[in-house]
């Protein structure tokens, strides 16, 4: 049985105009995310990952391309449909927990707020809030206001707010960026629990390599494009222990373009032109004529991409 992907980005472009200067934040980004995925997006500062997150969460509109989340075409949304999308389809967790919480409401009231916006009856709101607070292990903070909660509690409360309306996708922007490692683990555990128990697709934008190691799939973005993906799976060793195996893949876009990892390029001194050679089971990449020759030591400095 095939399932429709939760998120589809096809040749996504976003161009900003800042003080008369055009900045191309996304330049033809492709991405597919399956329902129930727990995905991390990583990239250097300015690579376009926050722009992507803003677009996917419905807070920004792409310039061109296609972006679809749970069947909602994000380029074509009217104001009403966009509000509906934010309310029912996408949840958002901010790096600063205070961004996602109303400071004058208690934790329970904050969690019930999206339900109130949706017009859910009071009993249901109360039950749902209690359920989420328990799930995320902050039910003791039910009547506390954000200022009376720790950073980790605030962030878990923000996650509860974000998933209160049972969104299909939850976007998290550096959710552990301001937390110590212990608290960050708690928050990450909460996200994983949300993914496991509620089945919510979760996309996390992060710098933190440790966070990236907690997810099954990590997408790296470079210069506004998807550069590579790392897939992790758990294997049993010969001794019967579980170990995590991570494999990094370059991403081939719809136009057939591949971004070579930066270290490959620098190691072989690739620039301007490269020579490709189609082999029966792989494509070989060699430095172009006139370029410095270095490589694996094979004749002609041949480097292969599989």
């Amino acid at each position: 049985m095939t399932t429709e992907p939760s998120i589809v980005c096809d040749n996504l472009v976003r161009i900003y105009q800042t003080e008369g200067v055009e900045v191309v934040a996304l330049q033809g980004l492709d991405l597919l995310v399956e329902p129930g995925d727990l995905l991390a997006i990583v990239g250097a500062s300015g690579s376009g990952k926050s722009t992507l997150l803003n677009i996917l969460s419905g807070n920004d509109v792409p310039t061109a391309g296609r972006a679809s989340v749970a069947g909602y075409d994000l380029l074509e949304l009217s104001g009403r449909r966009r509000a509906e999308y934010r309310r029912d389809v996408a949840g958002f967790v901010w790096q600063q927990a205070s961004h996602g919480l109303m400071p004058f409401l208690s934790a329970a009231e904050n969690v019930a707020l999206p339900l109130l916006i949706s017009g859910v009856p009071r009993r249901e709101r109360t039950e749902r809030a209690a359920e989420l607070l328990t799930l995320l292990d902050i039910d003791h903070c039910r009547d506390h206001r954000p200022a009376e909660m720790s950073g980790g509690e605030q962030q878990r409360c923000a996650i509860a707010v974000a998933v209160a309306n049972r969104p299909q996708v939850l976007f998290a922007d550096e959710p552990t960026g301001e937390l110590d490692s212990t608290t960050a683990d708690e928050v990450f555990a909460a996200l994983r629990r949300t993914n496991d128990e509620l089945g919510t697709t979760i996309v996390i934008v992060t710098h933190d390599p440790e966070v990236a190691e907690h997810v099954d799939r990590t997408v790296a973005i470079r210069d506004g494009r998807t550069a590579s993906e790392t897939l992790r799976r758990t294997e049993l060793t010969a001794e019967g222990h579980e170990r995590i195996v991570a494999e990094e893949y370059a991403v081939l876009d719809r136009a057939g373009r591949v971004q070579l990892p930066r270290e490959f390029v620098s190691t072989l001194g690739l620039r301007d032109r490269v020579r490709l050679e189609l082999e029966p089971d792989h494509v070989g990449v060699w430095p172009g004529a006139g370029g410095p020759v270095s490589g694996s030591g094979e004749p002609g400095g041949e480097e292969e991409a599989r």
Partner: peptide
């Protein structure tokens, strides 16, 4: 913030 939660 409220608009991200679906406020029209």
């Amino acid at each position: 913030i409220l608009r991200t939660l679906g406020l029209t």
